[in-house]
Design a protein around this nucleic acid. Sequence first.
DNA 1: CTGGGGAGGGGGCCC
DNA 2: TGGGCCCCCTCCCCA
Length: 260
Amino acid sequence: MPRSFLVKKHTNFAKKPNYSELESPTVFISPYIYRAIPLPLIPQAEILSPGAYSPITVWTTNNLPLSPLPSDLSPISGYPSSLSDTSSKDHSGSESPRSDEDDSILTKLTDPHGVETEKFQCGLCSKSYSTYSGLLKHKQLHCDAQSRKSFSCKYCEKEYVSLGALKMHIRTHTLPCVCKICGKAFSRPWLLQGHIRTHTGEKPFSCPHCNRAFADRSNLRAHLQTHSDVKKYQCKNCSKTFSRMSLLHKHEESGCCVAH
DNA sequence: CTGGGGAGGGGGCCC
DNA sequence: TGGGCCCCCTCCCCA
């Protein structure tokens, strides 16, 4: 599906969204401000955290994303610590998230390596999350809304149990973050921030190896893989490594790993 | 066909 | 508890 289908063009600028709800201290996000304040306003030459250059871990489709990280390896570029830390404050010990009205389930799952991890499972749809807060967000946006509706979306039929959840949902309709240059609209300010860089040409994230620059930090991380002899994603059959999960999947689907 | 860049979305963490 | 930020993932497109 073309990306353009995911965004809405605001051609009627007489009906401006309420940007006061969106603007953070980093005012460059607002499309109505960067005319008055010359670019670049986004911090220059952002330096990646040291973790971005740490020795990589080779992932295969077996160990990828469910296994906890080895304890002697620091998380790669902020790899969600919750995957390896199930004793976080979100669900520690006696502070069980369960209550008489809470149909969520704290389950212990065992991965293919026998490592036991705790997961918070939605009692309505069985979807599991590594943290209780993640489960809460899910329930607010989806399952609880189906069972205990109170706040209705005026743009569609969805209903939510909290005003906050509804406001978050409405953003997907109103797309309040509008690019002043091309009219594309986004639901989140940081999406607009990244989009604006496509117009300004600003690329604050530079590769230390080839000096190539990128507008998006994630894309720089993907690019860094291309400089590595041993890449992050490994075929479990032929041991060939790939810089991206999608390339590994393509490789496996192309027939290398027919003998599973 | 493969590899890589551009772009956008979802989930988790933190304040 | 809500919102912002960050990271990872995915899709699309192109060389």
